[in-house]
Amino acid sequence: MGYKIIFSQITPYLPAFLKGLEISIIISLIGMLIGSFIGVFAASGRTSSVYIVNKLVNIYVEIFRNTPLLIQMYLLYFGLAQFDIQISSFISATLALTLNVGAYTAVIFQTGLNAVHKEQREAAYAMGMTSFQTFRYVILPQAFRIVIPPLTNQFISVFLFSSVASTISVRELTYITMNVESITMRTFEVFIITAALYLIVTTVISLLSSIYERSYKY
């Protein structure tokens, strides 16, 4: 083996790592928040009785669920350049991630909405609630509790797959890692730091979710 672990060469780059982590988190937060928003609409579109809406939403969901995120980013970043449309790498990465999350969360929200018993809706109507009130006070709170674990997983996987943005040169954590690796050639140390940072964030996300879930138990 003969490989000595020396961390001293890496220490000057630690702020760069944290900066990269910050961008990773920002990208995944934007993707997750706007994506979930799209997901709720897409979920109600998938259960819609209007044929065209239903079909269009289904096509959107299936396209984004069945193609790689890398190709989606390439299409936005390199592909649109063919028509002289130039968007920055950060925006194309975030946009691709957001649309991707939208498709995945649509399925999650749909399962959540379907899991609420039909009797709940009927009972709410029997109490004289309007359909908005039923959705807001009866269906949504119950569905939300069901979708928390899969949404957490989605968030974790979005955070991990935000690393793909490094391929279109967004300066997030993986990009910084590769840069520092090529400057210092300390492969092992660099990857230990990156792995640790990724693990910390994913652990925190799942911890927060389990705390939230526990507080919701009844």
């Binding site: 083996m1 490989y3 991990l160 797959f161 935000s162 690393s163 793909v164 490094s166 391929t167 993986t174 890692t177 590769m178 690796e181 492969t187 092992f188 990857f191 990156t194 792995a195 990724y198 693990l199 994913t202 652990t203």
Partner: peptide
């Protein structure tokens, strides 16, 4: 825990750069 908590891209880079360096 480690494999599922880190991105695939990072793991691929680690194998790509790691195998020649370590072994």
């Amino acid at each position: 825990y480690i494999i599922r908590g880190t991105p695939l891209l990072m793991q691929l880079f680690l194998v790509y750069y790691g195998l020649p360096v370590f072994f």
